[in-house]
Design a protein around this nucleic acid. Structure first.
Length: 300
DNA sequence: AAGGAATACAACCGCCGCGCC
DNA sequence: GGGCGCGGCGGTTGTATTCCT
Protein backbone atom coordinates (compact mmCIF):
# COMPACT_ATOMS: atom_id res chain seq x y z
CA UNK A 1 0.00 0.00 0.00
CA UNK A 2 2.73 2.41 0.91
CA UNK A 3 4.43 1.53 -2.32
CA UNK A 4 1.26 2.53 -4.07
CA UNK A 5 1.26 5.88 -2.40
CA UNK A 6 4.81 6.33 -3.50
CA UNK A 7 3.71 5.74 -7.05
CA UNK A 8 0.77 8.06 -6.69
CA UNK A 9 2.51 11.04 -5.30
CA UNK A 10 6.07 10.56 -4.31
CA UNK A 11 7.90 13.84 -3.89
CA UNK A 12 10.36 15.19 -6.37
CA UNK A 13 13.15 12.90 -7.26
CA UNK A 14 11.90 9.70 -5.75
CA UNK A 15 9.31 8.30 -8.08
CA UNK A 16 9.75 5.04 -9.90
CA UNK A 17 6.82 4.41 -12.16
CA UNK A 18 6.23 0.95 -13.57
CA UNK A 19 7.60 0.81 -17.07
CA UNK A 20 4.64 -1.27 -18.17
CA UNK A 21 2.17 1.47 -17.41
CA UNK A 22 0.83 2.82 -20.67
CA UNK A 23 4.03 1.95 -22.38
CA UNK A 24 6.08 4.29 -20.32
CA UNK A 25 9.63 4.31 -21.51
CA UNK A 26 12.77 5.08 -19.59
CA UNK A 27 12.83 8.62 -20.90
CA UNK A 28 9.35 9.24 -19.68
CA UNK A 29 10.15 7.64 -16.36
CA UNK A 30 13.15 9.90 -16.06
CA UNK A 31 11.04 12.90 -16.86
CA UNK A 32 8.52 11.81 -14.30
CA UNK A 33 11.29 11.69 -11.78
CA UNK A 34 11.38 15.48 -11.94
CA UNK A 35 7.89 15.98 -10.75
CA UNK A 36 6.60 19.46 -10.25
CA UNK A 37 4.95 20.50 -7.03
CA UNK A 38 3.18 23.59 -5.81
CA UNK A 39 0.74 25.85 -7.59
CA UNK A 40 -0.43 24.90 -11.04
CA UNK A 41 0.39 27.16 -13.96
CA UNK A 42 -2.10 28.21 -16.63
CA UNK A 43 -0.22 26.05 -19.11
CA UNK A 44 -0.56 23.00 -16.91
CA UNK A 45 -4.23 23.68 -16.41
CA UNK A 46 -4.73 23.95 -20.15
CA UNK A 47 -2.84 20.73 -20.73
CA UNK A 48 -4.84 18.85 -18.16
CA UNK A 49 -8.20 20.27 -19.19
CA UNK A 50 -7.49 19.63 -22.83
CA UNK A 51 -6.42 16.08 -22.25
CA UNK A 52 -9.39 15.25 -20.05
CA UNK A 53 -11.73 16.83 -22.58
CA UNK A 54 -10.27 14.66 -25.29
CA UNK A 55 -9.81 11.40 -23.42
CA UNK A 56 -11.97 11.60 -20.35
CA UNK A 57 -11.18 11.21 -16.68
CA UNK A 58 -9.52 8.31 -14.94
CA UNK A 59 -6.21 6.50 -15.15
CA UNK A 60 -4.61 9.59 -13.72
CA UNK A 61 -1.05 8.32 -13.64
CA UNK A 62 -1.17 7.43 -17.30
CA UNK A 63 -3.00 10.63 -18.05
CA UNK A 64 -0.33 12.72 -16.38
CA UNK A 65 2.39 11.09 -18.43
CA UNK A 66 0.48 11.06 -21.69
CA UNK A 67 -0.47 14.70 -21.32
CA UNK A 68 3.11 15.63 -20.66
CA UNK A 69 2.37 16.87 -17.18
CA UNK A 70 5.19 16.55 -14.72
CA UNK A 71 2.73 15.96 -11.94
CA UNK A 72 1.61 12.91 -10.05
CA UNK A 73 -1.63 11.33 -11.13
CA UNK A 74 -3.05 12.17 -7.79
CA UNK A 75 -2.17 15.82 -8.17
CA UNK A 76 -3.82 15.87 -11.59
CA UNK A 77 -6.95 14.28 -10.22
CA UNK A 78 -7.14 16.77 -7.38
CA UNK A 79 -6.58 19.72 -9.65
CA UNK A 80 -9.27 18.53 -12.01
CA UNK A 81 -11.85 17.77 -9.34
CA UNK A 82 -11.28 20.86 -7.24
CA UNK A 83 -10.60 23.47 -9.86
CA UNK A 84 -10.87 22.58 -13.53
CA UNK A 85 -13.90 20.33 -13.60
CA UNK A 86 -16.88 21.97 -15.33
CA UNK A 87 -19.50 23.14 -12.91
CA UNK A 88 -17.13 23.84 -10.06
CA UNK A 89 -18.36 26.94 -8.29
CA UNK A 90 -15.98 29.36 -6.70
CA UNK A 91 -16.42 32.22 -4.31
CA UNK A 92 -17.98 32.55 -0.91
CA UNK A 93 -20.64 30.25 0.37
CA UNK A 94 -24.18 31.56 0.28
CA UNK A 95 -26.15 31.63 3.53
CA UNK A 96 -28.08 28.60 2.37
CA UNK A 97 -24.91 26.73 1.69
CA UNK A 98 -23.54 27.74 5.08
CA UNK A 99 -26.71 26.61 6.77
CA UNK A 100 -26.62 23.32 4.95
CA UNK A 101 -23.00 22.75 5.88
CA UNK A 102 -23.71 23.37 9.53
CA UNK A 103 -26.71 21.12 9.45
CA UNK A 104 -25.09 18.29 7.57
CA UNK A 105 -21.95 18.46 9.65
CA UNK A 106 -24.07 18.03 12.74
CA UNK A 107 -25.42 14.86 11.17
CA UNK A 108 -22.40 13.41 9.48
CA UNK A 109 -19.38 14.94 11.15
CA UNK A 110 -16.24 15.45 9.08
CA UNK A 111 -17.64 13.60 6.09
CA UNK A 112 -16.62 16.41 3.79
CA UNK A 113 -17.19 14.65 0.51
CA UNK A 114 -20.61 13.52 1.64
CA UNK A 115 -21.50 17.05 2.68
CA UNK A 116 -20.07 18.50 -0.51
CA UNK A 117 -22.21 16.11 -2.52
CA UNK A 118 -25.23 18.00 -1.24
CA UNK A 119 -23.77 21.30 -2.45
CA UNK A 120 -23.76 21.30 -6.24
CA UNK A 121 -20.55 22.68 -7.65
CA UNK A 122 -18.77 22.67 -4.31
CA UNK A 123 -15.88 20.41 -3.48
CA UNK A 124 -15.04 18.61 -0.30
CA UNK A 125 -11.89 20.69 -0.10
CA UNK A 126 -13.89 23.91 -0.12
CA UNK A 127 -16.28 22.67 2.53
CA UNK A 128 -13.40 21.48 4.64
CA UNK A 129 -11.59 24.77 4.31
CA UNK A 130 -14.75 26.67 5.15
CA UNK A 131 -15.15 24.67 8.29
CA UNK A 132 -11.57 25.02 9.35
CA UNK A 133 -11.35 28.73 8.69
CA UNK A 134 -14.76 30.24 9.40
CA UNK A 135 -16.27 27.83 11.86
CA UNK A 136 -13.17 27.07 13.86
CA UNK A 137 -12.36 30.77 13.91
CA UNK A 138 -15.62 31.46 15.66
CA UNK A 139 -14.93 28.67 18.12
CA UNK A 140 -11.63 30.29 18.85
CA UNK A 141 -13.32 33.64 19.40
CA UNK A 142 -15.58 31.98 21.90
CA UNK A 143 -12.60 30.47 23.59
CA UNK A 144 -13.91 26.96 23.22
CA UNK A 145 -13.53 23.91 21.07
CA UNK A 146 -15.78 23.24 18.09
CA UNK A 147 -16.81 20.06 19.81
CA UNK A 148 -17.80 21.74 23.03
CA UNK A 149 -21.34 22.14 24.20
CA UNK A 150 -20.85 25.88 24.47
CA UNK A 151 -19.94 26.19 20.84
CA UNK A 152 -22.69 23.88 19.71
CA UNK A 153 -25.21 25.98 21.57
CA UNK A 154 -23.83 29.13 20.01
CA UNK A 155 -24.15 27.60 16.60
CA UNK A 156 -27.62 26.34 17.20
CA UNK A 157 -28.94 29.48 18.83
CA UNK A 158 -27.02 32.20 17.05
CA UNK A 159 -25.49 31.22 13.79
CA UNK A 160 -28.10 28.98 12.25
CA UNK A 161 -31.09 31.20 13.09
CA UNK A 162 -29.24 34.16 11.66
CA UNK A 163 -28.49 32.28 8.51
CA UNK A 164 -32.18 31.64 8.20
CA UNK A 165 -32.80 35.33 8.71
CA UNK A 166 -30.26 36.15 6.08
CA UNK A 167 -31.80 33.80 3.57
CA UNK A 168 -35.18 35.30 4.21
CA UNK A 169 -33.87 38.84 3.95
CA UNK A 170 -32.08 38.10 0.70
CA UNK A 171 -35.13 36.53 -0.82
CA UNK A 172 -37.36 39.33 0.36
CA UNK A 173 -35.03 41.84 -1.20
CA UNK A 174 -34.88 39.85 -4.38
CA UNK A 175 -38.63 39.58 -4.55
CA UNK A 176 -39.06 43.31 -3.96
CA UNK A 177 -36.58 44.30 -6.61
CA UNK A 178 -37.43 43.96 -10.30
CA UNK A 179 -33.73 43.92 -10.97
CA UNK A 180 -33.62 40.59 -9.14
CA UNK A 181 -36.16 38.82 -11.24
CA UNK A 182 -35.34 35.12 -11.58
CA UNK A 183 -33.90 35.54 -15.03
CA UNK A 184 -31.44 38.15 -13.87
CA UNK A 185 -30.54 36.83 -10.46
CA UNK A 186 -26.91 36.61 -9.50
CA UNK A 187 -25.45 33.19 -10.04
CA UNK A 188 -25.26 32.46 -6.35
CA UNK A 189 -28.97 33.01 -5.92
CA UNK A 190 -29.87 30.78 -8.78
CA UNK A 191 -27.53 28.21 -7.37
CA UNK A 192 -29.16 28.29 -3.97
CA UNK A 193 -32.32 26.51 -5.02
CA UNK A 194 -30.59 23.39 -6.26
CA UNK A 195 -28.68 23.23 -3.03
CA UNK A 196 -31.82 22.89 -1.02
CA UNK A 197 -33.68 20.92 -3.62
CA UNK A 198 -30.80 18.57 -4.03
CA UNK A 199 -30.83 18.04 -0.33
CA UNK A 200 -34.53 17.40 -0.38
CA UNK A 201 -34.14 15.00 -3.26
CA UNK A 202 -31.21 13.24 -1.74
CA UNK A 203 -31.44 9.51 -1.81
CA UNK A 204 -30.24 9.08 1.73
CA UNK A 205 -32.86 9.49 4.45
CA UNK A 206 -30.50 11.67 6.42
CA UNK A 207 -30.04 14.12 3.61
CA UNK A 208 -33.65 14.07 2.61
CA UNK A 209 -34.70 14.97 6.10
CA UNK A 210 -32.70 18.15 6.32
CA UNK A 211 -35.21 20.28 4.48
CA UNK A 212 -38.70 19.36 3.56
CA UNK A 213 -40.53 20.33 0.40
CA UNK A 214 -39.92 20.48 -3.29
CA UNK A 215 -37.42 22.73 -5.01
CA UNK A 216 -40.09 24.78 -6.63
CA UNK A 217 -42.01 25.30 -3.45
CA UNK A 218 -38.86 26.34 -1.68
CA UNK A 219 -38.26 29.04 -4.19
CA UNK A 220 -41.89 30.11 -4.17
CA UNK A 221 -42.28 30.23 -0.42
CA UNK A 222 -39.53 29.65 2.09
CA UNK A 223 -42.11 29.60 4.84
CA UNK A 224 -43.74 26.58 3.28
CA UNK A 225 -40.50 24.68 3.71
CA UNK A 226 -40.82 24.90 7.44
CA UNK A 227 -44.53 24.48 7.70
CA UNK A 228 -44.43 20.83 8.43
CA UNK A 229 -41.57 20.86 10.84
CA UNK A 230 -41.96 24.15 12.64
CA UNK A 231 -44.91 26.48 12.74
CA UNK A 232 -42.72 28.92 14.63
CA UNK A 233 -40.12 29.13 11.93
CA UNK A 234 -42.78 29.20 9.26
CA UNK A 235 -44.33 32.17 10.98
CA UNK A 236 -40.92 33.76 11.10
CA UNK A 237 -40.54 33.38 7.39
CA UNK A 238 -43.99 34.74 6.77
CA UNK A 239 -43.87 37.75 9.02
CA UNK A 240 -40.27 38.76 8.70
CA UNK A 241 -39.87 38.47 12.43
CA UNK A 242 -36.50 36.92 11.87
CA UNK A 243 -35.13 40.15 10.57
CA UNK A 244 -35.40 41.84 13.95
CA UNK A 245 -32.07 43.30 14.82
CA UNK A 246 -30.42 41.86 11.79
CA UNK A 247 -28.39 43.86 9.35
CA UNK A 248 -28.18 42.28 5.95
CA UNK A 249 -24.52 42.65 5.17
CA UNK A 250 -23.08 41.36 1.96
CA UNK A 251 -20.17 39.72 3.65
CA UNK A 252 -19.73 36.02 3.19
CA UNK A 253 -19.63 35.70 6.92
CA UNK A 254 -22.78 36.22 8.89
CA UNK A 255 -21.14 38.04 11.72
CA UNK A 256 -19.58 41.41 11.26
CA UNK A 257 -19.28 41.72 15.02
CA UNK A 258 -17.24 39.30 17.00
CA UNK A 259 -18.69 36.18 18.48
CA UNK A 260 -17.77 37.29 21.94
CA UNK A 261 -19.81 40.45 21.43
CA UNK A 262 -22.73 38.49 20.08
CA UNK A 263 -22.58 36.07 22.92
CA UNK A 264 -22.38 38.84 25.47
CA UNK A 265 -25.36 40.58 23.92
CA UNK A 266 -27.27 37.36 23.67
CA UNK A 267 -26.68 36.49 27.29
CA UNK A 268 -27.67 40.00 28.31
CA UNK A 269 -30.89 39.69 26.37
CA UNK A 270 -31.49 36.36 27.98
CA UNK A 271 -31.03 37.86 31.40
CA UNK A 272 -33.76 40.29 30.49
CA UNK A 273 -36.03 37.37 29.70
CA UNK A 274 -35.94 38.22 26.04
CA UNK A 275 -36.30 34.58 25.17
CA UNK A 276 -32.78 33.66 24.17
CA UNK A 277 -32.00 30.13 25.17
CA UNK A 278 -29.51 29.49 27.87
CA UNK A 279 -25.98 29.58 26.56
CA UNK A 280 -24.52 27.57 29.31
CA UNK A 281 -23.23 24.13 28.60
CA UNK A 282 -25.89 21.83 27.43
CA UNK A 283 -26.67 19.13 25.00
CA UNK A 284 -29.37 18.60 22.49
CA UNK A 285 -28.57 15.05 21.64
CA UNK A 286 -26.41 13.68 18.88
CA UNK A 287 -27.77 16.12 16.37
CA UNK A 288 -26.36 19.21 18.00
CA UNK A 289 -27.31 21.99 15.63
CA UNK A 290 -29.52 20.41 13.09
CA UNK A 291 -32.34 22.30 11.48
CA UNK A 292 -34.73 19.88 13.08
CA UNK A 293 -33.39 20.96 16.41
CA UNK A 294 -33.16 24.70 16.00
CA UNK A 295 -36.58 24.87 14.46
CA UNK A 296 -37.89 23.84 17.86
CA UNK A 297 -36.09 26.72 19.53
CA UNK A 298 -37.93 29.93 20.34
CA UNK A 299 -36.88 32.87 18.23
CA UNK A 300 -35.43 35.89 19.87
C1' DA B 1 5.05 52.82 3.78
C1' DA B 2 6.72 48.70 5.87
C1' DG B 3 6.65 44.66 8.38
C1' DG B 4 4.33 41.24 11.04
C1' DA B 5 0.01 38.71 11.99
C1' DA B 6 -4.03 36.70 10.55
C1' DT B 7 -6.77 34.67 7.14
C1' DA B 8 -8.23 32.04 3.07
C1' DC B 9 -7.34 28.91 -0.19
C1' DA B 10 -4.69 25.49 -2.87
C1' DA B 11 -2.11 21.58 -2.74
C1' DC B 12 0.09 17.68 -0.53
C1' DC B 13 0.22 13.55 2.33
C1' DG B 14 -1.00 9.18 4.35
C1' DC B 15 -4.31 5.90 4.74
C1' DC B 16 -8.09 3.01 3.31
C1' DG B 17 -11.29 0.43 0.34
C1' DC B 18 -12.55 -1.63 -3.90
C1' DG B 19 -12.03 -4.14 -8.12
C1' DC B 20 -9.16 -6.83 -11.00
C1' DC B 21 -5.88 -10.34 -12.08
C1' DG C 1 -6.36 -15.45 -1.01
C1' DG C 2 -3.02 -12.03 -1.93
C1' DG C 3 -0.85 -8.44 -4.55
C1' DC C 4 -1.50 -4.60 -7.49
C1' DG C 5 -3.50 -0.41 -9.43
C1' DC C 6 -6.41 3.07 -8.71
C1' DG C 7 -9.75 6.28 -6.68
C1' DG C 8 -11.37 8.53 -2.72
C1' DC C 9 -11.26 10.56 1.81
C1' DG C 10 -9.84 13.40 5.69
C1' DG C 11 -6.02 15.73 7.87
C1' DT C 12 -2.27 18.72 7.34
C1' DT C 13 0.83 21.99 5.33
C1' DG C 14 2.31 25.69 2.26
C1' DT C 15 1.54 30.05 0.28
C1' DA C 16 -0.71 34.13 -1.41
C1' DT C 17 -3.48 37.77 0.12
C1' DT C 18 -5.43 40.88 3.37
C1' DC C 19 -5.46 43.20 7.60
C1' DC C 20 -3.45 45.57 11.36
C1' DT C 21 -0.07 48.16 13.89
Amino acid sequence: MEMMDALWMSPCGGISLPSSAAGVGEDEAAAAAELRRGPWTAEEDALLAGYVAAHGEGRWNELALAAGLRRTGKSCRLRWLNYLRPGVRRGGFTPREQLLILDLHSRWGNRWSKIAAQLPGRTDNEVKNYWRTRVQKHAKQLGCDVGSGRFHDAMRNLWMPRLLERIHADESAAAASPAHAPSSQPAYQNAAAPIISNCARATSPEAASCVTGSPSSWEASPAAQFQTSSPTMAACWSTGQCQNGYSSASSGDMFEESWSELLARANHDDADSAGLPDFGLGETGNNWWSLDDILQQPLY
